[in-house]
Design a protein around this nucleic acid. Structure first.
Lengths: 331, 331
DNA sequence: CACGCGTTTGCACCCGGTAGCAAACGCATT
DNA sequence: AATGCGTTTGCTACCGGGTGCAAACGCGTG
């Protein structure tokens, strides 16, 4: 049985009361140098460190933040998670990673996070609907929630997103200028896709340019394979003359799968026969075999803003940040 | 101020004592159907659910498992994390994701995990040295630790790994049979590389085949870019006639970077001019532009074994599992 | 109706901290 | 030596549950 030393143990060893021990571990507490020295020495000998669980119970603060993720196919999640955990840790917080999937839905995850008394919940790119919040199993007062990298569809739950309207405007402007006139859009998993609003704005801006028809093709999931399958189906069922001249994919991982299929299996040239553009600026898209044009989300700033909201340094209101168009040779 | 209902509140509402409320939430506890019904009804009305923090304090079990990760560049981490979190959640456990980096070293992470009373720690692919455990800041009794996807260099800390010896034997056998005789090995970040023992066995098996010389080239990190830079440096400084005929990269992400550079920047043919083989079977390596030969780790089984050890269903002893050679056309 | 037995319920105490108040202490002043 | 004041220390109560024991209860039996 693991048994850690408690404040009481240290107190006995140092010949003081447990409250004095606690003061020695509380910055700015009223304690003499001498007592502090003796306590710290006894604590070191016993390898004492405060039990954060007990502290959390008393203070009603766990310094834990739940991060909900429901799509692990997108490699872009990884750098985001890296930055998130790093920034959280710098603030003395720790990330609880919760996998939302068929076995573990949003309601269960919320219930779990709430029971564990997390200080905040970050819905990182998860498709989260307001009905979920109204589930009767859920209490009325949940920990503060934030949506990262996806629009919030819930009143009172702020989102931190890359400005999709601006992004799609820049993308469509660029494509139009390059001469493309028959646009197509590849959407990912239907359940996850809507909140991104990328499709919506893409179609809209083409309309503003007088191009009324945007072909929409759907992928099952967000993965290279799904992207490949989706474009294969499209190419097999569409005559060469009717095909789109540029395909915008909802994210880079779909775009990479599509690009690979277009060139590898159908022997078409990119961008001459069909141009492709993605979203996210996933590292491998920049590899010379792909040369994928894409749009980069301001990851660091987005994470920073969420952190500021969680720590209360910034009001919990939706923030939209501009990203950056990355032009390579696929479009 | 968020205030959740407590067992006491429910007790008052249901007209019983708080212990009866607790019994209603304890499977198999001694309580009449009638009491249970009334308690659950009152609980539902108040949206009560037990405070897991308080429970953890009393039971000395948090059902939290810390996962240490120190390399977010390898996209292969993501499917592993997905499986890990999913399996943990199925066991009623939750993952605490801890980012080990320059700002947050192993000692700090261990201290933190210990203070938070996690039930176990999984070092997922982290380079962890036994000196760390001897750090005087650390107590003598840490939570149970397990190393996943990397050899353990510490007595008493079991590892769950893909059998590197078998893997490299299969790889070298395959390459030898294909006629390659001038092998090269690309190692990743020096601090992280040694524990994988891939280089070691690679060189060894070639020696057994009478090939004594294996060129070793190093990458700075585990990333496509680092792989590209590393191979660029090699190709620029090595005459065509002196070059290796097959390059084994420590993982797929390095291999993809290298492959891209070899073909894209140097115009060499793969595998004719130089063959490439990786490790991990990262999804994109299978894309037709790459066709990367690789070796797949038995992810699901590895995770399963760790879970069994954590839950005590399996003794905490190092387990080595066989993987699978995936032959595509890069080697 | 008293008795006995198994079930249900309530209680004191515990987990390891925190908060705020009151007593004890140190020291200078009168 | 008595007084006063600021600092240090200890104490009670509390956070929200869990444990093990003892009292209370229900019910069949003699």
């Amino acid at each position: 049985m693991r048994r850690r030393a408690t404040a009481k143990n240290v107190a006995d060893a140092a010949g003081v009361s447990k409250w004095t021990v606690i003061r020695a571990f509380t910055p700015g507490a009223s304690i003499t140098e001498e007592s502090k020295r003796r306590v710290l020495q006894a604590a070191a000998a016993l390898n004492y460190s405060p039990n954060l669980l007990a502290r959390s119970l008393a203070t009603n603060l766990t310094h834990q933040v739940a991060i909900f993720v429901d799509d692990f196919a997108n490699p872009q999640k990884l750098p985001f998670l890296e930055t998130l955990t790093d920034r959280l840790q710098a603030e003395g917080l720790v990330a609880m990673l919760i996998n939302i999937n068929n076995h573990f839905d949003h309601v269960r995850a919320l219930l779990n996070a709430d029971q564990r008394q997390v200080d905040a919940i970050i819905m990182f790119g998860t498709a989260f609907r307001s009905e979920t919040l109204n589930d009767r199993r859920l209490g009325r007062s949940m920990p503060p929630m934030f949506v990262l990298a996806r629009d919030s569809q819930i009143d009172g739950v702020p989102a931190v997103v890359c400005d999709a309207e601006l992004a799609l405007k820049e993308i469509v402007d660029h494509l139009y200028e390059k001469g493309y006139r028959r646009p197509g859009f590849m959407a990912g998993a239907p359940a996850l896709s809507t909140a991104l609003r990328r499709r919506h704005h893409f179609i809209d801006f083409w309309k503003q340019k007088g191009v009324d028809e945007t072909a929409v093709i759907s992928a099952e999931r967000y993965s290279a394979q799904a992207g490949a399958e989706s474009v294969r189906h499209y190419l097999q069922n569409t005559d060469a003359k009717d095909r789109v001249d540029v395909l915008m994919c909802e994210n880079d991982i779909l775009a990479i799968g599509a690009l690979d299929e277009i060139r590898g299996q159908f022997g078409l040239r990119v961008p001459q026969d069909m141009a492709v553009i993605g979203f996210d600026n996933y590292e491998l898209g920049g590899a010379s075999v792909y040369g994928l044009s894409t749009y980069e989300q301001p990851k660091d700033e987005m994470v920073e803003v969420v952190i500021e909201m969680i720590t209360g340094r910034r009001p919990p209101e939706t923030v939209t940040l501009p990203g950056k168009l990355i032009v390579r040779n696929s479009a």
